[in-house]
Amino acid sequence: MDWTLEVVLLPVSDIDRAVAFYRDQVGFALDHDTRNEHMHVVQLTPAGSGCSIVIGDLPAQTEMAPGSMRGLQLVVADAAAAREELVSRGVECGEITVFDERDGGTFFGFADPDGNTWAVQQIKARAVHPLIPVEARQRFGAEQES
Rank of each mutant, 00 (worst) to 15 (best):
W3K: 13
T4F: 12
L5F: 12
E6I: 12
E6W: 08
E6V: 12
L9W: 12
L10Y: 03
L10I: 03
S13T: 11
I15Q: 06
R17L: 09
A18L: 01
A20R: 14
V26D: 00
V26Q: 02
F28M: 05
A29F: 06
A29M: 07
A29R: 07
L30Q: 05
D31Q: 14
D33P: 04
T34M: 13
T34I: 14
R35I: 14
N36K: 06
E37T: 14
H38L: 12
M39V: 14
M39W: 11
H40Q: 11
H40S: 09
V41E: 01
V42F: 05
Q43F: 13
Q43W: 08
Q43H: 10
T45N: 06
T45L: 07
T45A: 09
P46T: 04
G48Y: 10
G50E: 07
C51P: 01
I55H: 00
D57N: 15
P59I: 11
T62Y: 03
T62M: 07
T62V: 15
E63G: 03
M64C: 10
M64N: 10
M64A: 15
R70E: 07
G71Q: 10
Q73S: 14
Q73P: 05
A77N: 03
D78R: 02
A80V: 13
A81F: 06
A81T: 08
A82Q: 13
A82T: 14
E85W: 08
L86A: 05
V87W: 09
V87Y: 08
S88W: 01
G90I: 04
V91R: 01
V91N: 00
E92V: 14
C93M: 04
G94A: 03
G94C: 02
E95G: 03
E95R: 09
I96N: 00
V98S: 02
V98W: 04
D100R: 08
E101Q: 11
R102Q: 14
R102K: 12
G104H: 02
T106Q: 07
T106C: 03
F107G: 03
F107I: 02
F107W: 05
G109L: 01
A111F: 09
P113C: 02
T117M: 08
T117C: 04
W118M: 05
W118E: 00
W118Y: 12
A119E: 12
Q121S: 08
Q122V: 09
I123F: 11
I123E: 13
K124E: 15
K124C: 04
R126N: 06
H129T: 14
P130E: 03
P130K: 03
L131F: 10
V134P: 01
V134T: 07
E135D: 13
E135R: 11
R139G: 05
F140Y: 11
